[in-house]
Amino acid sequence: MTETVLRTGAEKRRFNVDMRALSPFIALIVLVIAGALINPDFLTASNLLNVVTRSAFIAIIAVGATFVIAGGGLDLSVGSMAALTAGVMILTLNNMGTGDMGTLALGMLVAIGLSAACGLANGLIVTFGRIEPFIVTLGTMGIFRSLVIWLAAGGTITMRNFELRELYRPVYFGSVFGVPYPIIAFMVVAAVGALILYRTSFGRHVVALGSNEDVARYSGVPIWRVRTLTYIIQGVCVGIAVLVYVPRLGSATPTTGLLWELQAITAVVIGGTALKGGIGRIWGTVVGAVILELVANIMVLSNFVSEFLVGAVQGAIIIIAMLVQRSVHRGR
């Protein structure tokens, strides 16, 4: 999977390889080597597949976040949005009765529709309300979260229909030719995301908007539309992540998606996207999400870190990974 990413990452028909774009991959390789040294079980196919599969939700959400952040925005509401979408999707599945594909498709449609609508709401408030995205999405974060708690009445929203549960379960646990569906899902999302960001006018407009809003405006870029669309894309990505998330445990709780927004933003930044906008790196983002999950995995697999200190070591590893990246392209 590392090779695939590398090959596609260099799609920009340039011969002089951009070290900055490459550095997250180097950090990833260093981590994999470190993991292998710490515990031989780390390099087993099943462990690596587990880790990459687990990173799917954050990776998919972070692809959306790459658009928002590259466009100079920020979305803190993604975690709560995911919880709300998952909750509403499960409630739809529970109340629409039968355990056939039709019900499942309806549930999926509702999930994507709702998350896109949440993204639209974020986008419209940011653009037309002219309010800092930090504040807007902090507000909607609270709103979405409370709605889930309210829907769950403080408890858990669980898929009641056993047939449906079994029908849906393979979407997380199944695989084609040994590649789990969630991995396929996030590769597809990333590929489509890269295509949109790098090859379409819209993607170019996003980068222009994030680089300098005034220049974009003076160059005739429809900034309001572009900005709103980035939030909708973020919403749709959250919806897709939920489609992969729900079959895993078949439930949504008030803690579902807690702090996912920070993980997504971290993945985006590790991937080399500038937090101030103007640079977007989809494949770096995906690698960033995998790195985050990998660090947690290595922590559990290692025998020498006390469970009390896991958080500290994780934080340190992420900072070191960023430092490695910096030194890689400073060295050039």
């Binding site: 379409t200 006018s201 222009a208 680089s211 300098n212 220049v215 974009a216 405006r217």
Partner: peptide, 29 residues
Amino acid sequence: KGKGLLLQQNLRINLSLAALDKFTKGSFI
């Protein structure tokens, strides 16, 4: 510097920004 060019982007991106429609084939640049 503030309103004319994207200083952090390369020449190609700056050049085509206003007239991007002229450089798209189908949906793609």
